[in-house]
Structures are given as C-alpha cells and as structure tokens.
C-alpha cells in the first residue's frame, strides 16, 4: 500500500486555489458561449442539408455541440463547434 504513495505526488498536489481557478476557467467559457438550443438545432439542420448534397448521411443520429479547445495553461481556451455526422454512403 505504501509503495503506491510517491513522494513526488505530495509535492505535485494542487492547491485548492489552483483547482478553483481551473474550474472557473472552464465554467466561464461555457457560460460565455451564449448559444440557445434553438440556434444549435437550426445550425444542425443547415449543416445536414449542405452535406447531403455530396454524400448520404444519417441526419437523425447526427450530433453537434460547442466545446472548448486550446491550452489551459496559456488561458486561451476557445469555443469550438463540433459536428459528428455518421456517413451512410460516400457516393450519393
């Protein structure tokens, strides 16, 4: 049991202040992205329409969401729109 506790980990432990800062940075990004569910639904509908021109997709199981990427240390987390579109047939 004692073998699992490494001396390094004691020094690596984050202070509660660091935890608070990290949590806030993530939290505020989703708060600041002011995008309603209806808008997202409209975007989803329009994307499906465009892609359908070129290939056969499963519009019903398609997913879109706004998340954040970038490096947390540098503090430049940016919101990103992710679309997950299952393709049924590459050639229409």
């Amino acid at each position: 049991m004692w073998r699992n506790i490494k001396v390094k980990n004691i020094f690596k432990r984050k202070s509660s202040k660091e935890i608070a800062k990290d949590r806030l940075k993530i939290l505020l990004i989703s708060d600041r992205v002011n995008c309603s569910a209806e808008t997202l639904e409209m975007i989803k509908h329009d994307i499906a329409k465009v892609i359908s021109k070129y290939m056969k997709i499963d519009a019903n199981s398609m997913e879109i969401q706004i998340s954040k990427t970038g490096s947390r240390e540098k503090g430049n987390l940016n919101p990103v729109l992710n679309a997950n579109i299952p393709i049924l047939d590459m050639n229409k």
Binding site: S15, K17, E18, L24, L28
Partner: peptide
Amino acid sequence: MVKRGDMMSATDVMDI
C-alpha cells in the same frame, strides 16, 4: 488563506 494557497488572490480573480 491566500498565503496557504487556499484562496484565489486579487490577481487571480482579475486574471479571470
């Protein structure tokens, strides 16, 4: 508490 690292400092809050 700030000295102990258990409270965000004024600088931390301003950064955010």
